[in-house]
Protein backbone atom coordinates (compact mmCIF):
# COMPACT_ATOMS: atom_id res chain seq x y z
CA UNK A 1 0.00 0.00 0.00
CA UNK A 2 3.02 2.28 -0.17
CA UNK A 3 3.82 4.53 -3.08
CA UNK A 4 6.19 1.89 -4.41
CA UNK A 5 3.30 -0.36 -5.27
CA UNK A 6 1.73 2.15 -7.59
CA UNK A 7 1.44 0.90 -11.10
CA UNK A 8 0.90 3.72 -13.49
CA UNK A 9 -0.78 2.38 -16.54
CA UNK A 10 -0.47 5.29 -18.88
CA UNK A 11 0.04 3.66 -22.24
CA UNK A 12 -3.12 3.13 -24.22
CA UNK A 13 -1.42 1.96 -27.38
CA UNK A 14 -2.78 -1.58 -26.98
CA UNK A 15 -5.42 -3.39 -28.94
CA UNK A 16 -8.63 -1.41 -29.38
CA UNK A 17 -11.03 -2.27 -26.55
CA UNK A 18 -14.61 -3.40 -27.02
CA UNK A 19 -15.72 0.19 -26.77
CA UNK A 20 -13.43 1.56 -29.44
CA UNK A 21 -16.36 2.69 -31.55
CA UNK A 22 -18.02 4.48 -28.71
CA UNK A 23 -14.78 6.19 -27.77
CA UNK A 24 -14.18 7.24 -31.34
CA UNK A 25 -17.62 8.81 -31.41
CA UNK A 26 -16.94 10.55 -28.12
CA UNK A 27 -13.69 11.96 -29.41
CA UNK A 28 -15.39 13.16 -32.55
CA UNK A 29 -17.98 14.96 -30.49
CA UNK A 30 -15.24 16.53 -28.40
CA UNK A 31 -13.70 17.98 -31.49
CA UNK A 32 -17.11 19.12 -32.57
CA UNK A 33 -17.25 21.18 -29.38
CA UNK A 34 -14.19 22.98 -30.59
CA UNK A 35 -11.71 21.59 -28.06
CA UNK A 36 -8.41 21.25 -29.82
CA UNK A 37 -7.04 19.10 -27.03
CA UNK A 38 -5.35 15.92 -28.17
CA UNK A 39 -5.00 12.89 -25.92
CA UNK A 40 -1.58 14.06 -24.79
CA UNK A 41 -2.60 17.28 -23.10
CA UNK A 42 -6.10 16.35 -22.04
CA UNK A 43 -6.93 16.79 -18.39
CA UNK A 44 -6.72 13.50 -16.52
CA UNK A 45 -8.08 12.39 -13.18
CA UNK A 46 -6.01 10.15 -10.95
CA UNK A 47 -7.96 7.14 -9.64
CA UNK A 48 -6.40 5.23 -6.78
CA UNK A 49 -8.01 1.81 -6.92
CA UNK A 50 -7.86 -1.02 -4.40
CA UNK A 51 -6.54 -4.23 -5.97
CA UNK A 52 -6.63 -7.74 -4.61
CA UNK A 53 -6.66 -11.11 -6.28
CA UNK A 54 -6.17 -14.26 -4.21
CA UNK A 55 -5.53 -16.32 -7.36
CA UNK A 56 -2.60 -14.19 -8.49
CA UNK A 57 0.57 -14.38 -6.40
CA UNK A 58 1.42 -10.88 -7.47
CA UNK A 59 -1.77 -9.47 -6.02
CA UNK A 60 -2.47 -11.82 -3.15
CA UNK A 61 -1.74 -9.01 -0.72
CA UNK A 62 -3.89 -5.93 -1.27
CA UNK A 63 -2.45 -2.78 -2.82
CA UNK A 64 -3.54 0.37 -4.61
CA UNK A 65 -3.06 0.96 -8.34
CA UNK A 66 -3.10 4.37 -9.96
CA UNK A 67 -4.99 5.05 -13.17
CA UNK A 68 -4.98 8.37 -15.02
CA UNK A 69 -8.35 8.68 -16.69
CA UNK A 70 -9.06 11.38 -19.30
CA UNK A 71 -11.57 13.78 -17.82
CA UNK A 72 -14.88 14.41 -19.52
CA UNK A 73 -17.77 16.60 -18.52
CA UNK A 74 -20.48 14.65 -16.71
CA UNK A 75 -18.12 11.79 -15.94
CA UNK A 76 -19.09 9.56 -13.04
CA UNK A 77 -16.77 7.40 -10.96
CA UNK A 78 -18.25 4.38 -12.74
CA UNK A 79 -17.35 5.90 -16.12
CA UNK A 80 -13.79 6.20 -14.85
CA UNK A 81 -13.70 2.60 -13.69
CA UNK A 82 -15.09 1.35 -16.99
CA UNK A 83 -12.49 3.39 -18.86
CA UNK A 84 -9.70 1.99 -16.68
CA UNK A 85 -10.87 -1.55 -17.30
CA UNK A 86 -11.50 -1.16 -21.03
CA UNK A 87 -8.40 0.85 -21.88
CA UNK A 88 -5.77 -0.07 -19.33
CA UNK A 89 -6.37 -3.25 -17.36
CA UNK A 90 -9.04 -5.77 -18.35
CA UNK A 91 -8.47 -7.66 -15.10
CA UNK A 92 -9.86 -4.78 -13.01
CA UNK A 93 -12.97 -6.29 -11.44
CA UNK A 94 -16.07 -4.50 -10.18
CA UNK A 95 -19.83 -4.97 -10.28
CA UNK A 96 -22.08 -2.68 -12.28
CA UNK A 97 -25.19 -3.00 -14.32
CA UNK A 98 -27.82 -0.35 -14.89
CA UNK A 99 -25.63 2.77 -14.50
CA UNK A 100 -28.57 4.76 -13.15
CA UNK A 101 -28.76 4.05 -9.41
CA UNK A 102 -31.50 1.45 -9.73
CA UNK A 103 -29.77 -1.90 -9.61
CA UNK A 104 -27.63 -1.20 -6.55
CA UNK A 105 -24.67 -3.26 -7.69
CA UNK A 106 -21.94 -0.59 -7.74
CA UNK A 107 -21.93 0.62 -4.15
CA UNK A 108 -18.27 1.33 -3.37
CA UNK A 109 -16.17 3.10 -0.77
CA UNK A 110 -15.24 6.26 -2.67
CA UNK A 111 -13.10 8.88 -0.95
CA UNK A 112 -13.90 7.41 2.45
CA UNK A 113 -17.65 7.14 2.06
CA UNK A 114 -20.15 4.59 0.77
CA UNK A 115 -21.53 5.84 -2.57
CA UNK A 116 -22.95 4.47 -5.80
CA UNK A 117 -20.19 4.85 -8.40
CA UNK A 118 -22.75 5.55 -11.13
CA UNK A 119 -24.38 8.34 -9.13
CA UNK A 120 -21.16 10.08 -8.09
CA UNK A 121 -19.82 12.86 -10.27
CA UNK A 122 -16.04 13.09 -10.52
CA UNK A 123 -16.29 16.89 -10.23
CA UNK A 124 -17.88 16.53 -6.77
CA UNK A 125 -14.83 14.75 -5.37
CA UNK A 126 -11.40 15.82 -4.27
CA UNK A 127 -8.55 14.20 -6.20
CA UNK A 128 -7.02 11.68 -6.39
CA UNK A 129 -10.19 9.66 -6.21
CA UNK A 130 -9.72 6.67 -3.95
CA UNK A 131 -11.95 3.71 -4.77
CA UNK A 132 -12.17 0.76 -2.41
CA UNK A 133 -14.58 -2.14 -1.89
CA UNK A 134 -17.31 -1.68 0.75
CA UNK A 135 -15.83 -1.82 4.25
CA UNK A 136 -16.85 -4.58 6.70
CA UNK A 137 -17.59 -7.03 3.92
CA UNK A 138 -15.02 -9.57 2.83
CA UNK A 139 -13.28 -8.80 -0.43
CA UNK A 140 -13.43 -11.46 -3.14
CA UNK A 141 -11.46 -9.67 -5.82
CA UNK A 142 -10.54 -6.02 -6.39
CA UNK A 143 -13.74 -4.05 -5.74
CA UNK A 144 -16.03 -7.08 -5.48
CA UNK A 145 -17.22 -8.01 -1.99
CA UNK A 146 -18.96 -11.07 -0.60
CA UNK A 147 -22.67 -10.12 -0.34
CA UNK A 148 -24.02 -13.47 0.86
CA UNK A 149 -24.29 -12.48 4.53
CA UNK A 150 -26.06 -9.24 3.63
CA UNK A 151 -28.62 -11.15 1.56
CA UNK A 152 -29.12 -13.63 4.40
CA UNK A 153 -29.97 -10.77 6.75
CA UNK A 154 -32.36 -9.31 4.18
CA UNK A 155 -34.15 -12.63 3.84
CA UNK A 156 -34.18 -13.15 7.61
CA UNK A 157 -36.95 -10.55 7.96
CA UNK A 158 -39.06 -12.45 5.41
CA UNK A 159 -39.58 -9.52 3.05
CA UNK A 160 -42.93 -10.58 1.57
CA UNK A 161 -46.59 -10.68 2.54
CA UNK A 162 -48.13 -13.89 3.79
CA UNK A 163 -47.83 -16.23 0.80
CA UNK A 164 -50.78 -18.38 2.00
CA UNK A 165 -53.09 -15.41 2.22
CA UNK A 166 -55.16 -15.81 -0.96
CA UNK A 167 -57.58 -13.15 -2.18
CA UNK A 168 -61.21 -13.94 -1.37
CA UNK A 169 -62.16 -14.07 -5.03
CA UNK A 170 -60.10 -13.77 -8.15
CA UNK A 171 -61.25 -10.18 -8.60
CA UNK A 172 -60.68 -8.96 -5.04
CA UNK A 173 -58.35 -6.01 -4.93
CA UNK A 174 -56.06 -5.29 -2.04
CA UNK A 175 -56.16 -1.57 -1.79
CA UNK A 176 -53.74 0.67 -0.01
CA UNK A 177 -54.75 4.15 1.03
CA UNK A 178 -52.70 7.03 -0.39
CA UNK A 179 -51.83 8.06 3.17
CA UNK A 180 -50.40 4.64 3.96
CA UNK A 181 -48.46 4.67 0.74
CA UNK A 182 -46.95 8.01 1.71
CA UNK A 183 -45.97 6.49 5.06
CA UNK A 184 -43.99 3.61 3.60
CA UNK A 185 -42.93 5.22 0.33
CA UNK A 186 -39.35 5.96 1.29
CA UNK A 187 -38.77 2.48 2.71
CA UNK A 188 -39.78 0.89 -0.60
CA UNK A 189 -36.96 2.67 -2.40
CA UNK A 190 -34.27 0.30 -1.11
CA UNK A 191 -32.10 -1.16 -3.90
CA UNK A 192 -30.19 -3.66 -1.71
CA UNK A 193 -26.86 -1.96 -2.39
CA UNK A 194 -25.55 -2.60 1.17
CA UNK A 195 -24.12 0.91 1.58
CA UNK A 196 -25.93 1.34 4.91
CA UNK A 197 -24.94 -2.12 6.12
CA UNK A 198 -21.32 -1.36 5.31
CA UNK A 199 -21.44 1.98 7.14
CA UNK A 200 -22.99 0.54 10.31
CA UNK A 201 -20.56 0.26 13.16
CA UNK A 202 -22.76 -2.23 15.04
CA UNK A 203 -23.32 -4.52 12.05
CA UNK A 204 -19.55 -4.45 11.57
CA UNK A 205 -18.86 -5.60 15.11
CA UNK A 206 -21.53 -8.29 15.25
CA UNK A 207 -22.71 -10.36 12.31
CA UNK A 208 -25.90 -11.34 14.11
CA UNK A 209 -27.38 -7.84 14.08
CA UNK A 210 -29.98 -7.59 11.30
CA UNK A 211 -28.62 -4.24 10.18
CA UNK A 212 -30.33 -1.11 8.80
CA UNK A 213 -31.27 -2.47 5.36
CA UNK A 214 -33.04 -5.56 6.71
CA UNK A 215 -34.83 -3.57 9.41
CA UNK A 216 -35.99 -1.07 6.80
CA UNK A 217 -37.28 -3.99 4.78
CA UNK A 218 -39.21 -5.23 7.83
CA UNK A 219 -40.56 -1.70 8.31
CA UNK A 220 -41.80 -1.62 4.74
CA UNK A 221 -44.08 -4.60 5.46
CA UNK A 222 -44.90 -4.00 9.13
CA UNK A 223 -46.18 -0.50 8.35
CA UNK A 224 -48.11 -1.60 5.27
CA UNK A 225 -51.82 -1.66 6.13
CA UNK A 226 -52.35 -4.63 3.80
CA UNK A 227 -50.33 -6.91 6.05
CA UNK A 228 -52.51 -9.30 8.06
CA UNK A 229 -52.52 -9.16 11.89
CA UNK A 230 -51.03 -12.59 12.43
CA UNK A 231 -48.29 -11.93 9.93
CA UNK A 232 -47.60 -8.60 11.55
CA UNK A 233 -47.22 -10.25 14.96
CA UNK A 234 -44.75 -12.74 13.52
CA UNK A 235 -42.80 -9.94 11.91
CA UNK A 236 -42.60 -7.99 15.16
CA UNK A 237 -41.16 -11.08 16.82
CA UNK A 238 -38.20 -10.73 14.44
CA UNK A 239 -38.05 -6.94 14.75
CA UNK A 240 -37.97 -6.94 18.55
CA UNK A 241 -35.77 -9.98 18.92
CA UNK A 242 -32.37 -9.56 20.46
CA UNK A 243 -30.72 -9.13 17.05
CA UNK A 244 -33.34 -6.64 15.91
CA UNK A 245 -33.95 -2.95 16.45
CA UNK A 246 -32.47 -2.68 19.98
CA UNK A 247 -28.97 -2.97 18.65
CA UNK A 248 -29.22 0.30 16.75
CA UNK A 249 -27.26 3.04 18.50
CA UNK A 250 -28.57 5.96 16.42
CA UNK A 251 -25.23 6.93 14.94
CA UNK A 252 -27.03 8.00 11.76
CA UNK A 253 -24.25 6.52 9.60
CA UNK A 254 -26.74 4.54 7.49
CA UNK A 255 -29.04 7.51 6.94
CA UNK A 256 -26.09 9.61 5.81
CA UNK A 257 -24.81 7.22 3.19
CA UNK A 258 -28.08 5.86 1.75
CA UNK A 259 -27.99 6.73 -1.97
CA UNK A 260 -31.80 6.58 -2.10
CA UNK A 261 -32.13 8.98 0.86
CA UNK A 262 -34.19 6.57 2.95
CA UNK A 263 -34.51 7.91 6.53
CA UNK A 264 -33.25 4.61 7.95
CA UNK A 265 -32.63 5.77 11.51
CA UNK A 266 -36.12 7.26 11.66
CA UNK A 267 -37.64 3.97 10.55
CA UNK A 268 -35.66 1.97 13.08
CA UNK A 269 -36.70 4.39 15.84
CA UNK A 270 -40.35 4.11 14.86
CA UNK A 271 -40.11 0.33 15.07
CA UNK A 272 -38.46 0.59 18.52
CA UNK A 273 -41.34 2.70 19.82
CA UNK A 274 -43.90 0.35 18.29
CA UNK A 275 -42.11 -2.65 19.83
CA UNK A 276 -42.08 -1.02 23.28
CA UNK A 277 -45.83 -0.41 22.98
CA UNK A 278 -46.37 -4.06 22.08
CA UNK A 279 -44.20 -5.27 24.96
CA UNK A 280 -46.00 -3.03 27.46
CA UNK A 281 -49.37 -4.26 26.22
CA UNK A 282 -48.21 -7.82 26.76
CA UNK A 283 -47.36 -7.09 30.37
Amino acid sequence: MSADDETTTDDDTGVPGPHADRLARKEASNEGRGSAASDADRETVRFRIYRYNPDDEDRASPRYDDFHIPFERGMTVLDGLIYARDEFDPSLTFRHSCRQAICGSDALFINGRQRLACKTQVTDLSRPIQVEPLPHLDVKKDLVVEMEHFYEQMHAVEPYFNPDDEPVTATTERRQSPANHEHIKMSTRCIWCASCHSSCNIAAGDDDYLGPAAINMAYRFAMDEREGDRREDERYEIIKSEQGVWRCQTQFSCTEVCPKEIPLTEHIQELKRESVKRNLKFW
Binding site: P62, D138, V145, N201, A204, F252
Partner: peptide, 19 residues
Protein backbone atom coordinates in the same frame (compact mmCIF):
# COMPACT_ATOMS: atom_id res chain seq x y z
CA UNK B 1 -12.38 -13.88 0.72
CA UNK B 2 -10.11 -11.30 2.25
CA UNK B 3 -11.18 -9.99 5.65
CA UNK B 4 -9.88 -6.49 6.20
CA UNK B 5 -11.04 -6.53 9.81
CA UNK B 6 -12.42 -3.60 11.72
CA UNK B 7 -9.10 -2.02 12.68
CA UNK B 8 -9.34 0.31 9.73
CA UNK B 9 -12.41 1.81 11.38
CA UNK B 10 -10.43 3.67 13.97
CA UNK B 11 -7.80 4.59 11.43
CA UNK B 12 -10.54 6.47 9.66
CA UNK B 13 -11.58 8.66 12.58
CA UNK B 14 -11.10 11.76 10.45
CA UNK B 15 -14.00 10.58 8.31
CA UNK B 16 -16.39 10.05 11.23
CA UNK B 17 -19.63 11.98 10.99
CA UNK B 18 -21.29 13.99 13.76
CA UNK B 19 -23.58 11.13 14.76
Amino acid sequence: AYDRGVIEDFGRWREFSAG
